[in-house]
Design a protein around this nucleic acid. Structure first.
Length: 187
DNA sequence: CCCTGATTCGC
DNA sequence: GCGAATCAGG
């Protein structure tokens, strides 16, 4: 693919928003992260600022035939670096049986013992702890199992590690590839 | 090992 | 100009 004006514009936008080169490459499609980085440099876009790192120190480099151009140190554009503030420990069991922190705490142990084992003990299958990643966070080896309503804003992908180029983690692969016939048999 | 950006240089 | 290969680092 070529760098059309549209694609260049998108590149500039995403780069300024703090997305990584690989993420941008994924979104643009048809290009590698190297291509993105190369383009970023050719466009002379501000690089990522590193703390205390001599950015232009290309000391030990073989065949260094060109003088390193005076590159402005650049201030970080970290501002928009959201990319989700690291989801707090998500629970495998969907609804955490929160015994309201107020009264009735004396029964706590009894209640937990009853509620906890229920969900997964039946199937004998361990439900992985989903990372709840966004669309843009999907990579070659993240589980792409969608959860929730794609139009809702609480939609997310499993994001667990998917083995060997599989689009899903081991757990979701079972669900995904389970034939309808088998699914009916399982009672 | 996964990832990040930086740089070089043949195309 | 482009980007794979490579480097240097987290």
């Amino acid at each position: 693919m070529s760098w059309t004006d549209e694609r260049v514009e998108k590149l500039k936008q995403l780069w300024s928003e703090g997305l990584s080169a690989s993420q941008i490459a994924t979104q643009l499609g048809g290009v590698s992260r190297n291509a993105v980085i190369g383009k970023v440099h050719r466009l002379a876009l501000p690089g990522r600022a590193k703390s205390g790192t001599p950015a232009t120190a290309s000391a030990t480099r073989p065949t260094n035939r060109n003088t390193t151009p005076p590159r402005a140190p650049n201030f970080a554009s970290r501002a928009a670096g959201r990319t989700q503030p690291s989801a707090p420990p998500p629970q495998a069991t969907p609804s955490a049986p929160r015994t309201a922190g107020a009264t009735a705490l004396k029964q706590e142990t009894v209640i937990e013992a009853e509620a906890a084992p229920a969900p997964q003990a039946k199937a004998g299958v361990v439900v992985p702890i989903m990372r709840k990643i966004a669309l843009t966070e999907l990579t070659e080896r993240t589980c792409k199992w969608p959860v929730g309503d794609p139009t809702a804003d609480d939609f997310f992908f499993c994001g667990c590690e998917s083995p060997e180029n599989s689009p899903y983690c081991s757990y979701h692969a079972k669900l995904a590839y389970q034939p309808v016939s088998e699914r009916r048999r399982a009672s």
